[in-house]
Design a protein around this nucleic acid. Structure first.
Ligand SMILES: NC(=O)c1ccc[n+]([C@@H]2O[C@H](COP(=O)([O-])OP(=O)(O)OC[C@H]3O[C@@H](n4cnc5c(N)ncnc54)[C@H](O)[C@@H]3O)[C@@H](O)[C@H]2O)c1
Ligand SMILES: NC(=O)c1ccc[n+]([C@@H]2O[C@H](COP(=O)([O-])OP(=O)(O)OC[C@H]3O[C@@H](n4cnc5c(N)ncnc54)[C@H](O)[C@@H]3O)[C@@H](O)[C@H]2O)c1
Lengths: 235, 235
DNA sequence: CCCACTTTGTGCACCGGTTCACAAAGGGAC
DNA sequence: GTCCCTTTGTGAACCGGTGCACAAAGTGGG
């Protein structure tokens, strides 16, 4: 009778699906704003930039929330995806490292819109500590553990220089945090059970450069055949 | 005889491999600075945070550059990976949208270090145009095509609000650009042959939240069994 | 020159994810 | 109630990528 607790639901949702749910959610929010009541997998897939079979399979992992012959109820689906992603609660985020990037992130509005609240800013530089940014006081990194506890922080964004990142990560983890978004260009080593996601601008550019090179190579007739180590080897 | 143009080399390198090459490169640069001459797949894999079989298979796609019983020559491998990624030339990058994020990117040093040069900053806001940031004048978006041509820009970073991103992308592509790094939270639709990579902070946080929720659910004995649409459905 | 040791390069089995294609389900018309 | 139309949900084939495990290749010592 409890048909709604669908078969596929009981065991975990594939990682690839999780990564796409926010995309669907964004598209659905747009549709909700435009007053659409229902949407077909075809249309939603189009809006999210994926193939419709994939979209249906993804949604089927959360349950059987569509109506054959009709589509999905926009509001209902928004609710289900939000719940699945844990966005029905709000999350306190701390940003550690309030430099160029940390400031940009702190001032960024798109954050709050989706249940994330910047609850603390932390830095090691006495020059920076005490600054007021986006309505928050920058606190000293020495206060890290206390601040995390006091503000109920559960996600930490790392925007320190690469050299400091591992050390800060260790402290943050010791303080009980298990979700970290890392902007520093280093491979963090963390214990089992801690989730790290990284954003690395430089890697993205290098991947683009690779493909760009391929494209221009193709036009100019391939790379030079000389695949050898050129003279300039100074070691 | 031309043993070096290895078997695996002739056809394209797997996308997953391309995405890891920058990681290896970063690790190798660290080793080079510390004066290491050679490195084993085991050690390099460790430093890059991957499994050593994967590393060897990745490298084998570029050619057979290791020495059995010894390992890889650090400098030589740096050169080969750099060449493969197209980092032996330098790339002129334009940043469109010089707000919070655009400024942070413009001021970011880690860029230049790897063959990428911020060659132009563009914005639509007359308030911003003319500002001098990181040694560059912010130019008006009307100048887009001319600036791209004049500075030899081949990669564009989009840091405009979401609402403007598609429109800017269209113009940039019309101007001949085929590599775009998009920070705006929208799915850009682009013609065949144009490479888009996106960085979406909000998606990363949502993925972290999903896992964080799972972790805490596990401790508190799973989510409430009520999977139903709660009362508050206002449609 | 040969043997013991190290480390690469890769064949192969496996796995998660994608896509196709279709049966099953629901809606609406009459 | 029956029929037709639309659209979902999913079985199954396929595909790219991963990791094990080992033969091949190279080094160094005697
Ligand atoms: N700015 C960008 O666009 C950009 C892009 C990609 C990656 N990154 C990376 O993000 C990180 C931050 O970049 P940024 O440009 O903001 O650098 P930044 O130097 O402007 O800021 C770093 C901040 O971290 C603080 N800090 C240093 N050690 C600390 C510690 N132990 N604890 C707490 N705070 C500490 C510094 O005081 C400084 O305020 C770097 O790792 C950088 O490589 C930046
Ligand atoms: N700031 C962040 O940390 C952050 C994080 C993730 C994503 N983003 C995304 O990055 C983008 C920029 O964020 P931001 O915080 O810098 O916003 P912002 O409003 O501070 O800056 C946007 C800039 O783009 C300019 N602009 C607007 N329309 C333009 C057009 N048609 N052509 C050229 N320039 C135009 C504006 O004048 C402004 O200077 C947004 O899409 C945002 O969602 C920002």
């Amino acid at each position: 009778m409890i048909r709604r607790l669908s078969q596929a639901r009981e065991r975990g949702i594939p990682e690839a699906t999780v990564a796409r749910l926010p995309l669907y959610l964004r598209a659905l929010n747009g549709m909700s704003e435009r007053g659409l009541a229902t949407v077909s997998s075809e249309d939603l897939a189009m809006a999210a930039g994926v193939n419709s079979a994939k979209l249906r399979k993804d949604l089927s992992h959360l349950g059987s929330y569509g109506t054959r012959g009709v589509g999905y109820d926009v509001e209902y689906l928004i609710y289900q995806i939000s719940r699945e992603l844990g966005l029905t609660q709000d999350w306190a985020v701390a940003i550690v490292g309030v430099g160029n990037l940390g400031r940009a992130l702190a001032n960024y509005g798109g954050f709050v819109s989706r249940g994330f609240r910047v609850a603390a800013l932390l830095d090691a530089d006495p020059e920076v500590v005490g600054d007021r940014i986006a309505g928050l006081n920058v606190e000293h990194i020495d206060e890290l553990e206390a601040v995390i506890r006091r503000r109920g922080v559960s996600i930490v964004v790392l925007a320190t220089p690469a050299a400091a990142a591992q050390q800060v990560a260790d402290r943050v983890i010791a303080a009980g945090i298990t979700s970290i978004l890392n902007f520093a260009p280093v491979v963090l080593s963390v214990p089992e059970g801690v989730d790290i996601r990284k954003v690395d601008l430089s890697i993205e550019l290098q991947i683009l450069a690779f493909h760009e090179q391929r494209k221009t190579d193709r036009m100019t007739g391939g790379p030079a055949m000389a695949e050898e180590w050129p003279e300039a080897v100074d070691l």
